[in-house]
Amino acid sequence: MIRSDILKELVPVITDELVVCNIGLPSQELHMLDDQPSNFYMLGTMGLASSIGLGLALNQKAKVLTIDGDGSILTNLGTLPTIANNPADNFILLIIDNGSYGSTGDQPTYAGKKTSLTAVARACGCDNVIECSAEDTVATVTEALKGDKMTIIVSKCESGNVKVPVIELDAPVIKHRFMEEVKRRNA
């Protein structure tokens, strides 16, 4: 299974959730599969999906799912200690770990070599870290969404991409409709 297979299976589970989605293909795939105002697509700024998700989760009540990648977490590795030390129980971080920088042509990341992001997250102090297979990802995310504990999920999958169109929504429009959803859920 590659990332887009996971996203396809995940869509029915997350369609109603606040989702902060990583830059590049993950956002483009989610946008193509199931565009929702409750999705915040990152159009730039590699690495910050987990930071945006944590900032959002800490400051309002609704559940927040960040869909991140291994390359992106490696870019912003400082995010894991911040998450560990400022837990938000409405925050779920899904790291789709395909061992490669998918959006730039599948160059290998260190997460596909000697570095275990699961072990890194635990060493950073994250209490609830689950590593799962691609096949078990939807069940793991579903369970985490039902619970009330901050959860980091590292989903090990194969690398590979599908052809997807770019997102043509204006950034302020993505933000505006997302903020309206946040307001609605906190009303």
């Binding site: 690495g47 910050l48 900032g55 959002l56 995010t79």
Partner: peptide, 18 residues
């Protein structure tokens, strides 16, 4: 935050959280 760009990500999330 550990780095300032990370901090700006947190701030973006906080803003969208109201």
């Amino acid at each position: 935050s550990n780095k300032e760009d990370e901090g700006m990500g947190l701030c973006a999330g906080a803003w969208m959280g109201g």
